[in-house]
Design a protein around this nucleic acid. Structure first.
Lengths: 129, 129
DNA sequence: CTATCTGCAAACGTTTTGCATCTGT
DNA sequence: ACAGATGCAAAACGTTTGCAGATAG
């Protein structure tokens, strides 16, 4: 409770349950994963609340929305800089905590103002091979 | 016509129209973009055919499905190795034809069998700044 | 007290599917 | 001839929205 004060969002019991589920979570859960997990201990939870909370956390920079799963958005509570490795069969996602030099010279940016980058590695996970 | 023989898929007029639209296309169109463009000259085109054709081309390795647009799948007929730069405001996509060294040591792959990687650069495009 | 959140259900946009008919090879 | 494609409409899926009632601060 105390530790979430800095988020400056209303801390409802539903939100605390979601925050609790996300804390230290390395599974890159989808909205449904979160919904299912939190519903167990909080039967009245609705999808609207899950998405609403994720939106608030995104805006506060506390959760990152991943676009690497073709079927649904996935969410990552680890906001430290890192990359991802995704299984091309089951879409399991693993973290890659390593820094790479991937700089673009001015002439390659097509007039864009660059703000960041992300590297996705593709592979077949242990249980899919 | 001749040049598509090697695809070894049935070349219907609808498919030729789609192939024609995709040829050399640098816009990374969505299924709807393709549908709209091809419908102009081919009024009976259906979405099922667009998706069916894209699926066939994907399987033949002739088109790449991009997952970088959060709202919809985008398709890239350029199958040469390259990366992408995406506008965080309007989702416009530009190609980055440059090679980067992004190798992973065995101990970072979490047991995955690596098969590839892709780098996404984020920025604000010229018309959005 | 009141700005904001919740929960429900309905709406939305994209993609997939079932199926009867048609067509490229 | 026939495997496989088309076109339509309906369904499926993840996500968003509207709104009445509830609640954190």
């Amino acid at each position: 409770m105390e530790k979430y004060r800095s988020l400056q969002i209303k801390l409802t019991p539903q939100r605390l349950a979601i925050l609790n589920y996300l804390e230290g979570n390395k599974c890159h859960p989808s909205a449904e994963d979160i919904y299912k997990a939190v519903t167990k201990h909080f039967p009245t939870m609705s999808f609207a609340t899950v998405y609403n909370t994720l939106e608030a956390l995104k805006n506060k920079g506390n959760v990152q929305e991943l676009k690497i799963d073709p079927n649904k958005k996935r969410y990552d509570p680890d906001i430290s800089r890192h990359h991802h490795l995704i299984c091309i069969k089951c879409n399991e996602i693993a973290d890659i905590h390593k820094e790479f030099k991937v700089e673009l010279s001015e002439d390659l940016t097509a007039g864009f103002h660059l703000v960041g980058n992300a590297i996705e590695f593709y592979g077949v996970c242990q249980s899919c091979k």
